[in-house]
């Protein structure tokens, strides 16, 4: 479990990092917190020729609120977001979900951008960013572009990022007054990837129900959202939303759980997350 040989680059700013990615084409991989990439290297499952280490680019680690939106630098540590007072006030679903990511030691190192760009199909942050209608800011040789979360997550460990693009910032819009939220996760042990996780955000003008762990990444459960939109936000609507979400999920069997079991989890956890959100809406 030692990585194969690779070259190492340590750029000091985003422009240099992007230039390095462009220069090496698909042979380079950005290194963020390394909590997923380094194990992949050690198992020799990833064999990039060049690692572009982003850890010295201080500008990428900022967390701030501007124009009402939360702006998280791609290299902000998960633990920093989890502990941020502005985040807790305005986007409390984020620390709640981050608490399910592995253990404190890993969250101290792991980054928000790294998790999103890696897009493990059972990871918490992609699901929550989808539920929050976040936008991803990507920097490439041709400049900057904004990618909606809906377009960003493109399948198992796939994103809309091009090989020469770097995810630099995540923008999360402000949640209107009276928004309720719920986050539910079932995992075998504290800190494991989710068997299933469900993020529900109920805004006065619409619902977001996102399920992850059932397929190739976070999925909007539009049928469940429609149920809540039609029937209003009460316990009965949550029951029906759970059924709708399960009906729309198509998990496969894997060594940790058979498909039918994950479907049961989607029902149970969607109901619970929805009920949590309803209670919080009323506060």
């Amino acid at each position: 479990m030692k990585p194969p040989p690779f070259a190492y680059e340590c750029p000091r700013d985003v422009a240099e990092a992007v230039a390095l990615l462009a220069a090496h084409g698909g042979d380079a991989r950005p290194l963020a917190g390394g909590q997923s990439l380094v194990p992949l290297l050690n198992f020799r499952l990833a064999r990039p020729a060049v690692l572009v280490d982003l850890n010295r680019i201080e500008a990428l680690a900022r967390i701030r609120v501007g124009d009402g939106a939360l702006r998280i630098g791609a290299m902000a540590r998960q633990a920093a977001v989890e502990a941020d007072a502005d985040v807790a006030r305005g986007w409390p679903i984020l620390p709640a979900a981050i608490g399910h990511i592995a253990h404190p030691q890993i969250r101290n190192r792991g980054t928000v951008g790294g998790s999103l760009a890696h897009n493990d199909p059972a990871a918490e942050l992609p699901a929550v960013m989808l539920a929050l209608d976040a936008e991803m800011i990507a920097q490439g040789p041709q400049g900057q572009r904004t990618i909606a979360a809906r377009e960003f997550f493109a399948g198992t460990m796939e994103t809309a990022l091009r090989p020469d693009e770097l995810l630099t910032e995540i923008r999360v819009p402000a949640l209107p007054e009276g928004t309720g939220w719920g986050f539910q996760e079932a995992a075998r042990r504290q800190g494991d990837f989710a068997l299933v996780a469900v993020a529900v955000v109920l805004k006065p003008d619409g619902a977001r129900v996102v399920v992850t762990g059932t397929g190739d990444g976070p999925a909007h459960m539009e049928a469940a959202e429609a149920v809540v939109a039609e029937r209003g936000t009460d316990a009965d609507a949550c029951e029906a939303a759970g059924d709708a979400a399960a009906a729309a999920s198509e998990p496969a069997d894997d060594p940790h759980a058979p498909a039918w079991y994950r479907q049961k989890l989607v029902t149970a956890l969607t109901r619970r997350a929805c009920r949590e959100a309803v209670i919080r809406m009323g506060r």
């Binding site: 042990r189 504290q190 494991d192 990837f193 060594p255 940790h256």
Partner: peptide
């Protein structure tokens, strides 16, 4: 409740990491 080694029909081990071999921790 947690730890189980599995093999496929050809004898390939399916559990070779602590992501798949679930040793309970202080949390469990």
């Amino acid at each position: 409740f947690y730890e189980k080694l599995r093999f496929d029909e050809a004898g390939q081990p399916l559990v070779t990491t602590f992501m798949d071999y679930l040793i309970p921790t202080a949390m469990e």
